[in-house]
Design a protein around this nucleic acid. Structure first.
Lengths: 141, 141
DNA sequence: ACCAACGTTTACGTCAACGTTAACTTTTGG
DNA sequence: CCAAAAGTTAACGTTGACGTAAACGTTGGT
């Protein structure tokens, strides 16, 4: 599989190398494979994840801690997709999955709330915009 | 007109008293009238402004500096609504208004960009949610 | 084989956005 | 009228999210 060194990743994501390592340290980005000498080798998947993180941070205004919660929900789920054979703790697993589901439902609700507030904000800004355009028109009839 | 002391304002906005004073210090909130002894007296308008600031901060993820830019755009405009009579610098005023208009148009565009990215983000989360609900259904048929 | 360019860890520095504490004055209910 | 509650300014402390510098190892081209 094609891999990238950190400077490449830095350029395509717009993040500094420091930030990329920092995100790994926080657990936001899964650790990469390393070369014999210890250099990180990123895959396309890492890059996608970084772009998602940037979106959540800049556009949605989430803190890294909140993003970590989001990430861990997915991680937990992916982890559960592996061993489906043991039927004795299926009860356990089901319960855990239900908790994850609840977490996701809450996240969706939070996002909807944000979108609604954002729409309201946009509306107010647009009204101001309209008033200003009117004011301009009144300066030169 | 009805006024409120800072503790009241703190309760209805959810901000701490420190934060409210801090926002005034930054220029985000217009200074209030004071009592003889120096206590701040807030109006309903102050409260509305604080709520807008919280929205911009929490929901849109704007920095206080960005919010200050937004606020000053409005302030500039309100300031221009006063003296409409002098026709000599009407040219000046018109030019200034046009700059404000351009600023607002950019803000609107930025907001639209954010809303789109947010919708995309929501979509991905919803797909994950659906997959998890399916997984749960598969644990107990 | 070498060295310039790039990578790594470790540790301290910085800046925004407040929290906290101190020292003091004002307001207010009994 | 007076103590407790609430307000004020000023100053220093804290936390999140990185920036920066040092000291060192790795890679790749000539």
């Amino acid at each position: 599989m094609e891999t990238y060194k950190i400077d490449e990743v830095s350029k395509v994501t717009g993040l500094t190398k420091r930030t990329i390592r920092y995100y790994e340290e926080l657990g936001l980005l899964m650790p990469t494979d390393r070369t014999e000498g210890g250099m990180r080798l990123y895959t396309q998947e890492h890059i996608e994840r970084l772009k998602q993180i940037v979106s959540a941070r800049d556009v949605l205004g989430f803190s890294l801690q909140e993003i970590l919660d989001f990430v861990q929900l997915r991680e937990t789920f992916e982890g559960h997709r592996t061993s489906i054979q043991n039927t004795e703790d299926a009860q356990q697993k089901r319960h855990h999955l239900q908790e994850v589901e609840r977490g996701l439902a809450q996240q969706l609700q939070m996002i909807d709330q944000k979108m609604e507030t954002m729409a309201q904000f946009r509306k107010e800004r647009e009204q101001l915009h309209q008033r200003i355009k009117d004011a301009i028109r009144n300066t030169l009839p």
